[in-house]
Each structure stands twice: as structure tokens, then as C-alpha cells.
């Protein structure tokens, strides 16, 4: 009798007080952060008022697009951008394989090695590809080499992290069967893990290539080769019709890359 009474008296709530407090804290911090930022950020209102006018001016200068500039200055740079993206992705794949293996706890059951590999992956990801490009331009001088290495070093973290996660999710059954036959570590890797993670690996590679095509287009702004250099030159000379040409070609390459990736993914998956 008393049990039913207590159930009736009990108040049902969706969240515990701690959860509600935490949510409230998040909302409060969010509002405070937005208000503080909005009040202190340096925005000059006059610049905002004449933005539509400036925008119109910009579009007028961009039109007509300088199509004739394409064979002279853009084509070479565009091809170079694609080379940077492709080579950078390939180098990243080669580097990410061992690091991804070391990061997966079920492949290398050693906490210290896992931790070190994860540290490498995190530091690769937390440096933006433009910063990597700045560093490599300082080391190797301006040009495509710096761009390729920047793309490669930025991608290692991404590919390695996802590859390591795919490895950790792989099925134990096959591996145990191989272990039971006395297969050495290398055979277990080649016949146990690799067939399981192969589709994931190629889909990560394609995904990263797609991102890299976009990223390599801006690396030239810091001197690391590719179409960004053409963009930078046109911008510095205020040749907006050429800027429009470059932007248009970047846009088309990005769209084509996305179509290619979608088609290949349909075929292999």
C-alpha cells in the first residue's frame, strides 16, 4: 500500500538536477560568450553599410570573366594543384598506415605505443594545412614541394585517426582463427585485418582526396604552389576579372572532384 503511495507521490522528471544544472551552465556560458564577443569585437559599422555597394562594384569588376587568361596563367597552376592534392594524399596514406596501426589497441596491445601514435595524429590535425604550408615554405622555399608536404602532413592525422578507429572495430573472430593456426603477426595483419578494413581505408582516402583538392587551392596564398599563386597574383594586382576566372576554375574542379569521388565510391562499395 505504502509502495503505491510513494510511487504516486514521486515526481518524474526527465533529467537529474545535475544534468539540468550542466545544461543550464552550457546555455548560460553560450549566451555570455555571444554577448561578450558581440560587444567587444571590432566591427566598423560604416564598413557594413556600404557593403552592398562594394559588392556590386566587385561584381562589376569581375564581369566579364577573363576567359582568355585561362590558357596563359591558370591551366598550369590548376594542374599543379591537382598534382599537389593527389601526391599529398598518397604520401599521407603511406605515412598514415603505420601510425594508424600503432594507434589501434587491438593490433599493437601496448599503451605507450598507442599513446605516442595518437599524439602524432592529434598534433598533425591541430595544425591547419595553411600553417603547415607556411612552415614548409620556410624550410623548402616557395613551390609545389612545400604544398605537397603540407597536404601530406595535415592529412596523416585525419587518415590515421579514421584508419585506427576502423581497425579497432574489426571483428575478432577472423583474427583468432588465424592466431589458432599459428600465423605470424604479419600474416594476421595481411589476411585478418586488411580485408576487413580495406573498404573503409579506400573510402577514407577518397574522402580526404576530395578535401585536399579544396585545400590545395588555397595553399598558394602563402606561396606553396598551385592555383592559389595565380589567385594571389591576380588579387594583388586588383585584376578582378582574372580573380573571377580563377574562382570559376576552382569551383569547376571542386565540383568535378566531388562527382568523381561519388562515382568511384558507388563502384567500390
Amino acid at each position: 500500500m505504502s509502495a503505491t503511495a510513494s510511487i504516486e507521490q514521486r515526481r518524474w522528471r526527465r533529467f537529474t538536477p545535475r544534468q539540468r544544472l550542466a545544461r543550464f551552465a552550457v546555455y548560460l556560458t553560450l549566451v555570455v560568450a555571444i554577448v561578450l564577443s558581440a560587444r567587444t569585437v571590432e566591427v566598423i559599422p560604416e564598413f557594413l553599410y556600404d557593403a552592398p555597394e562594394q559588392m556590386r562594384d566587385l561584381l562589376e569588376r569581375m564581369w566579364p570573366i577573363a576567359w582568355s587568361h585561362y590558357p596563359k596563367g591558370v591551366h598550369e597552376a590548376l594542374v599543379e594543384t591537382l598534382h599537389i592534392a593527389t601526391l599529398g594524399t598518397l604520401i599521407a596514406l603511406v605515412m598514415a598506415l603505420p601510425v594508424g596501426l600503432m594507434a589501434a589497441n587491438n593490433v599493437v596491445p601496448n599503451r605507450v605505443v598507442n599513446y605516442l601514435a595518437k599524439l602524432v595524429l592529434v598534433s598533425s590535425r591541430s595544425v591547419n594545412s595553411l600553417v603547415w604550408a607556411l612552415l614548409f615554405v620556410a624550410v623548402f622555399g616557395p613551390g609545389a614541394l612545400a604544398g605537397t608536404l603540407a597536404i601530406a602532413f595535415r592529412s596523416v592525422g585525419f587518415v590515421g585517426k579514421l584508419f585506427g578507429e576502423a581497425l579497432e572495430e574489426s571483428n575478432r573472430g577472423t583474427i583468432e582463427a588465424l592466431e589458432a593456426t599459428g600465423a605470424p603477426w604479419s600474416s594476421r595483419l595481411a589476411w585478418g585485418y586488411w580485408p576487413q578494413v580495406k573498404p573503409a581505408f579506400w573510402s577514407i582516402a577518397l574522402f580526404r582526396w576530395d578535401i585536399n583538392v579544396r585545400e590545395s587551392a588555397v595553399l598558394g596564398l602563402v606561396g606553396a604552389g598551385g592555383i592559389g599563386m595565380a589567385l594571389d597574383t591576380a588579387l594583388n594586382l586588383f585584376q578582378w576579372d582574372r580573380v573571377a576566372m580563377v574562382l570559376f576554375s576552382i569551383f569547376s574542379v571542386v565540383v568535378v572532384a566531388e562527382i568523381i569521388v561519388t562515382q568511384i565510391r558507388k563502384k567500390i562499395l
Binding site: 569585437v41 571590432e42 566591427v43 566598423i44 564598413f47 557594413l48 557593403a51 562594394q54 559588392m55 566587385l58 595553411l130 579544396r214 585545400e215 587551392a217 588555397v218 596564398l221 589567385l231 588579387l235 574562382l247 576552382i250 569551383f251 571542386v254 565540383v255
Partner: peptide
């Protein structure tokens, strides 16, 4: 989605001038 944020930022720097507003 088609342009990298840095390229979009270039356009906005022209439209609204240098400074945080273009970045936003």
C-alpha cells in the same frame, strides 16, 4: 560548401573591409 573559407574571406575583405567582420 564549394569554396574554402579563406577564399570566401578574400571576397568579404573586399566587400566589408579588413577586420573581424570579414572573418565572421
Amino acid at each position: 560548401r564549394s569554396f574554402h573559407p579563406v577564399i570566401v574571406a578574400i571576397i568579404f575583405v573586399k566587400a566589408v573591409g579588413f577586420g573581424a567582420l570579414a572573418g565572421i
